[in-house]
Computed example of a mutant assay.
Amino acid sequence: MTRAHLPGILAMAAIVVASNILVQFLFGQWLTWGAFTYPVAFLVTDVMNRVHGPRAARQVVLAGFAIGVLCSLIGTQIIGEYGPLVTWRIAIGSGLAFLTAQLLDVVVFDQLRAGRWWRAPLASTLIGSSADTALFFSIAFSSALAFIEPANDVSWAAEPLPLIGFGPIVPLWVSLALADWLVKLGLALLALMPFRIIVRRLAKNRG
């Protein structure tokens, strides 16, 4: 790790901490405010990958993972109105989803880096985001994985409701996952311009 990697690490740390705080606050019926900050982590990873290479990107991911684990451990010790702010299922799901999705992002980006400038960041973010959503919500809320934390009652997440309010009847957590995934997809597209601008400026500064 070099001093050039420090901005990426600090940016990732800020995103992870902010997302862990903002996830406690609802945005509408299906989302939390954290859904809008967390996807920026993929932008940071992709910028580091483009400018400094996959090794630097992985170092930033591992730093973010360590900070995320620390945030989750702190959250498990803070008791809110309905129990710990972070259950062990959420902690495990969050950590595993982050690490898997971000490292997958690094691999996909590196494989596509020689193509059009937008191809690698878009494809890697879409694939990583999909893996992140699937892993987190299934581990944290699926009744099929209740054995992970038997004492944690997540029966509320299995309540049958129309998919995001108007689709077929599915467990509530599926609607939460779909809403989260749609936000990630939208932000993946919006992040292309900031990616292009940041990469150009960093490359110019290095040159």
Rank of each mutant, 00 (worst) to 15 (best):
G28L: 10
T87E: 07
P160A: 10
P171S: 01
A157E: 12
F42R: 15
I92W: 10
L178A: 15
T2Y: 02
K184N: 03
F137D: 05
L96G: 05
L202T: 11
L192H: 11
V174G: 00
G53N: 04
D153W: 03
R89P: 10
G53T: 05
L10M: 14
S129V: 13
Y82W: 09
R58G: 01
A101E: 11
A140P: 07
L62W: 13
A120M: 04
L85G: 02
P162A: 05
L70H: 00
L6P: 07
V17N: 09
L182P: 03
R3P: 06
V44G: 04
N152Y: 07
P84N: 04
P54D: 02
A97L: 06
L145H: 09
A57M: 02
R58K: 07
I78W: 12
A4L: 05
Q29W: 10
C71H: 00
Q102M: 13
A120W: 07
L187W: 08
A146W: 01
G68L: 11
L103M: 11
V170H: 08
T125N: 13
P54E: 00
A66V: 12
A4S: 02
L85E: 04
Q111R: 15
A191S: 15
S155K: 06
L103N: 12
G93W: 06
I127K: 14
I139N: 07
V170L: 08
I169Q: 13
A144H: 15
P171E: 05
P39S: 12
W118A: 12
A63K: 03
G75R: 01
L161E: 14
L178C: 12
F109R: 00
A123D: 06
F166P: 03
I127Y: 14
R201H: 06
W173L: 07
M193V: 15
I198F: 05
F36K: 05
F195Q: 08
R206M: 08
P84M: 04
S124Y: 09
I15T: 11
L189W: 15
L99R: 03
G28D: 09
L187T: 08
L189D: 06
F42E: 14
F166R: 09
L26W: 10
G207E: 13
V51A: 12
F98T: 00
T87R: 05
N20K: 08
D110A: 13
E149A: 12
A123G: 04
I169E: 14
Q77P: 00
N152A: 05
L135D: 00
G34H: 04
V51N: 05
A188S: 13
M48L: 10
G186Q: 02
M48R: 05
F98N: 00
D105N: 14
L185P: 02
A63F: 04
P121M: 03
P160L: 09
A57D: 00
V51F: 07
D132L: 12
N49V: 02
Y82D: 15
G64Y: 13
P39C: 09
Y82G: 09
N152S: 08
W156I: 08
F137Y: 12
L6G: 04
P150C: 07
L73G: 11
